[in-house]
Design a protein around this nucleic acid. Structure first.
Length: 474
RNA sequence: GGUCCCGUCGUCUAGUGGCCUAGGACGCUGCCCUCUCAAGGCGGUAACGAGGGUUCAAAUCCCUUCGGGACUACCA
């Protein structure tokens, strides 16, 4: 049993979240069956070719922990795994189809095709190639308008083309009758339809797992398999991830459509992986928090919901926080340090602060933001809004008392700091804790919201703390 | 426009004829806890698109309708 993930280089050079989604289900199924998962790069569109996008696909998929058994970067028995390196295998198939009468040359110019389509749309007719070139020799066709020197190869779709197939998720599915699809382009590259079928056959792919948008072109592929006398694979058409407005998820409408966005925001990869597994899918026991292994172990196509789910970043955010709380402290600390890019003493400080933020963060970016006050050094500045609210006239006595109480402290440990501040501000000045610690928090951390104050002060150290309090006292 | 796919709380979902006066989760929200913010605990809010059938019984089956989506390229 073999499934493959086809990845087309993204025109923006940035992998799409749908790629990870398909990858997860491909992999879960492959692992469940003990089969192989192949990564294949479908780079037959040279106009959209992006040199660096391939590496980004590897990086983000590995970040998510979705590893392939065979692929361009690791090789395998079906190498090569880039269609641009398999070009010689498509031409013979096109020739065979031409010879058997299942395909024909078409010399129509893109302009003629565009005009034809426009006229059809205007007349409210179904669009489709009008077969002007069918049965015509080159010279014969050349006498007609809209002639191009280099022909493409088109499928000759018969009236009785098979339009029904069994889908692993949807059961029996009907699909529209295909147009005479181009198989070979004028640049000598195959189109997706040809390359995909040829490669899937030669790589012995048994299960084709792809997005729902491919249902309508499945009859083309069925025809190709049948014409070549190849065994058809099984098909599973996954639902499409959606934007909040229910349209197919897109980078223009949704930052989450961009896989690197999750990395940049510091979401935990295990959370995204789990969340993607919840999209259109559920485990038999209804448990929402599950590992990839659990998903693979019970994987079943009948549990895939054909309805396209809206990608809800809020829930992913919650889930990321959930996973953060389950992490070993050292692991979490290491991730925060790596995300912040701090080293040396600053990294040590951040490591010690990890327990302070573990239950306050969902993403590494949030941890980074919360801990900036520890590592900014001389660039420290109090947030203007926080200063306006907490460091006004009435705060002066509070700050003064705080300084006085901390100055005399022998031990600068959190418990002692708390005891001293409580004695001076709550007992001494008769303030409510909330009002007592507000000004101190803003003066020391620069923000209205911070990790626990006394622990933060301990980590910051006596010198920095006193300097910041003095500065706020101005 | 045509063809196809799909329709359970705002969102992700459970549900495969009786266990459903529809369960869980996120979100929102009330209370508790509390040095801020969180986390946590206990509550609340909110859905079977509509209309017809079939059946003793329908969210579950059938039909119609409405709604959403995808496709309709020498892009994948």
């Amino acid at each position: 049993m073999t499934v493959r993930l086809r990845v087309a280089p993204s025109p923006t050079g940035d992998p799409h979240v749908g790629t990870a989604y398909m990858s997860l289900f491909n992999l879960a199924f492959a692992r469940h069956e003990g089969g192989a998962f192949i990564l294949r790069i479908e780079d037959t569109d040279r106009a959209r070719f992006q040199a660096d996008s391939e590496q980004q696909v590897y990086d983000t998929l590995r970040w998510l922990g979705l590893d392939w058994d065979e692929g361009p970067d690791i090789g395998g028995p079906h190498a090569p795994y880039r269609q641009s390196e398999r070009l010689e295998s498509y031409r013979p198939v096109a020739e065979a189809l031409l010879a058997s009468g299942h395909a024909y040359h078409c010399w129509c110019t893109p302009e003629r095709l565009a005009e034809m389509r426009e006229a059809q749309q205007k007349a409210k007719q179904p669009t489709g190639y009008d077969r002007l070139c069918v049965g015509k020799a080159r010279e014969e066709r050349a006498a007609l308008p809209g002639f191009a020197e280099t022909p493409v190869v088109r499928m000759l779709v018969p009236d009785d083309a098979p339009l029904t197939f069994v889908d692993l998720i949807r059961g029996e599915v009907n699909a529209p009758r295909p147009d005479d699809q181009v198989l070979m382009k004028t640049d000598g590259f195959p189109t997706y339809h040809l390359a995909n079928v040829v490669d899937d056959h030669s790589m012995q792919i048994t299960h084709v797992v792809r997005g729902e948008e491919w249902i309508s072109s499945t009859p083309k592929h069925l025809l190709l398999y049948d014409w070549m006398g190849w065994q058809r694979p099984a098909f599973a058409h996954m639902p499409l991830l959606r934007n909040a407005d229910k349209s197919k998820i897109s980078k223009r409408k949704n930052p989450a459509a961009r896989l690197t966005w999750f990395v940049d925001e510091g979401f935990l990869p295990e959370a995204l992986r789990n969340f993607l597994g919840l999209m259109g899918y559920s485990l038999p026991d209804g448990e929402e928090i599950f590992s990839f292994e659990e998903m693979a172990a019970s994987f079943d196509w009948s549990r895939v919901n054909p309805v396209g789910p809206v990608f809800d970043v809020d829930k992913l955010h919650w889930m990321s926080g959930h996973y953060v709380r389950e992490l070993e402290l050292a692991d979490l600390a290491g991730r925060i340090v790596a995300f912040m890019g701090v080293e040396g003493a600053a990294a040590q400080l951040v490591r010690r602060a990890a327990p302070l933020v573990q239950e306050r963060m969902a993403t590494l970016r949030e941890a980074s933001d919360m801990l900036q006050f520890l590592v900014v050094g001389p660039r420290f500045a109090v947030d203007p809004d926080a200063a306006a609210k907490q460091l006004g006239e009435s705060a002066q006595p509070v700050l003064g008392a705080a300084i006085a109480s901390l100055e005399g402290l022998d031990s600068f440990a959190a418990a002692d700091i708390e005891a001293a501040l409580r004695a001076a501000l709550v007992d001494g000045l008769g303030l409510k804790p909330k009002h007592a610690f507000g000004p101190v928090r803003v003066a020391v951390t620069g923000n209205l919201v911070s990790p626990p104050l006394f622990e933060s002060i301990e980590l910051l150290g006596r010198d920095t703390t006193m300097a910041r309090l003095q500065s706020a006292l101005g």
